[in-house]
Design a protein around this nucleic acid. Structure first.
Length: 116
DNA sequence: ATTCTGACAGCAA
DNA sequence: TTTGCTGCCAGAA
């Protein structure tokens, strides 16, 4: 069987995708929260980098549910149209105004707390 | 091997 | 309050 790049069992990216896909419908989280759950609390940039190439993955990654710590849709430009990310979130009941989630704290989902 | 970059976060001013 | 710099780690050239 082909040895696919054996970089450890699951590479960092796979974990990011796994956690991201576990985000419940209508909930959101932050890059830092995911990074912290993965072990490196200060590697939030890697989470964003992983989501940057999530389009190359066969599975659907709800990357629109991941925003920065301010609740701002910093990655909306990576969804093709700038309004796609906001549309997806609003479709899940998230209220967004001026690229910022209003009820961010209410909808926030921390994997290290909720996921156990 | 070295250098640059990145969908961030934290802190200083 | 906002702005800017720094740290962080993995991938691409």
């Amino acid at each position: 069987m082909p040895q696919k790049k054996l970089k450890g069992n699951n590479d960092f990216f796979s974990r990011v995708y796994d956690v991201t896909m576990l985000i419940p419908f209508g909930r959101i989280t932050s890059y830092g929260a995911v990074a912290r759950f993965l072990g490196s609390g200060r590697s939030a940039r890697m989470v964003g980098w992983a989501l940057n190439v999530c389009h190359t993955k066969p599975d659907f990654i709800p990357a629109h549910r991941v925003v920065n710590r301010n609740g701002i849709l910093t990655g909306k430009f990576h969804f093709g149209n700038s309004t796609t990310m906001q549309q997806l979130l609003e479709n899940e009941g998230i209220i967004i105004e001026d690229d910022r989630i209003l009820n961010f704290r209410e909808k926030f989902w921390d994997p290290s707390t909720e996921l156990i």
